[in-house]
């Protein structure tokens, strides 16, 4: 096991142990290890790497260190720039989990139910992947290739995640069968970009990998009264939610049925839109 104290440390250790598990908060990783799902040959712990723990504004973007915890995402000065991310972070686990689990870990786990995933998808987040041989960038939808499968290569870790600072309301909602500390049955992030005149919708737990409701986005973007600010008509909202539902391909599992997921994602889409732009 290597306990890295700098990014260079971590990359060196990963270079010599390309099959190492990268341990940040461990809230997903240790569950898999304890279940015997992940063979453990070597572990590189990155929780004490200062370069991974910070965030900064870079022009019209925010660069988020991969080891920021969910609690970090709730800091008011960051939350005001990335409200949906903060809302998603608040929906995660208990305070103990939020103090430990990290944004980069949520992405690297690659679960369709990852709570920050729909937000990052809606924001067109870009990942900075780092290894001893250098840095490469990747979009989130390229990175997560399937259920708990990612494009992360041996010897590589997520260094940072870049998201734009948008002008407009943002909403994240998540359905679970408990009022807290629950894996999502369905989740949805809706962000409005007033300057770009777009509405972007990311969906969780309704497909194998991060999903955008692109048709619904195009439709609602074209039907919003961007200048007058009048809320959309009931017909427009119905068509929008229909298109959101149409974008999904949910499954039946022990957390919910496909039928329920389709229904719920439509409800969330309508409610999130109403919160963001008002309802007629």
């Amino acid at each position: 096991m290597t306990i890295a104290t700098s990014l260079e440390d971590a990359c060196c250790a990963l270079a010599s142990h390309p099959d190492a598990l990268v341990l940040a908060g461990g809230t997903d990783l240790m569950v898999a290890v304890n279940r015997g799902d992940l063979p453990v040959h070597h572990v590189v712990a990155i929780g004490r790497v200062p370069e991974l723990r910070g965030w900064r504004r870079e022009g019209d973007h925010v660069r988020l260190g991969a080891a920021l915890t969910y609690t970090d995402l709730l800091q008011p000065d960051l939350a005001v720039l990335q409200p949906a991310l903060a809302q998603a972070a608040r929906s995660v686990g208990s305070p103990q989990i939020r103090n430990t689990g990290t944004l980069g870990g949520n992405v690297a786990t690659g679960s369709p139910a990852g709570d920050t995933i729909p937000v990052l998808a809606a924001l067109d987040a870009v990942l900075e992947l780092r290894s001893a041989s250098g840095t490469r960038e990747m979009r989130l939808d390229e990175f997560v290739t399937g259920v708990k499968r990612t494009a992360l290569e041996g010897g590589e870790l997520i260094e940072a995640i870049r998201v734009p600072v948008l002008d407009g309301p943002q909403e994240f909602c998540k359905v679970g069968t408990r009022n807290a500390m629950v894996i999502s049955v369905v989740s949805l992030a809706l962000v409005v970009d007033r300057s770009g005149r777009t509405v972007r919708v990311g969906l969780g737990s309704v497909a194998a990998s991060p999903l955008r409701a692109t048709e619904a986005e195009a439709y609602i973007g074209g039907h919003l009264d961007w200048d007058g600010g009048r809320p959309p008509s009931a017909e427009v909202v119905d068509r929008f939610t229909e298109l959101v539902v149409g974008a999904t391909s949910p499954i039946d599992d022990h957390r919910g049925s496909a039928r329920y997921r389709r229904h719920a994602v439509g409800v969330l889409a309508g409610r999130a839109l109403a919160r963001a732009v008002g309802a007629a």
């Binding site: 809302q87 998540k174 807290a180 500390m181 409610r271």
Partner: peptide, 13 residues
């Protein structure tokens, strides 16, 4: 409200 930390409901629902 129902849904709790998931922020799914508004009082009208």
């Amino acid at each position: 409200l129902p849904g709790g930390a998931g922020r799914t409901a508004d009082p009208a629902h």
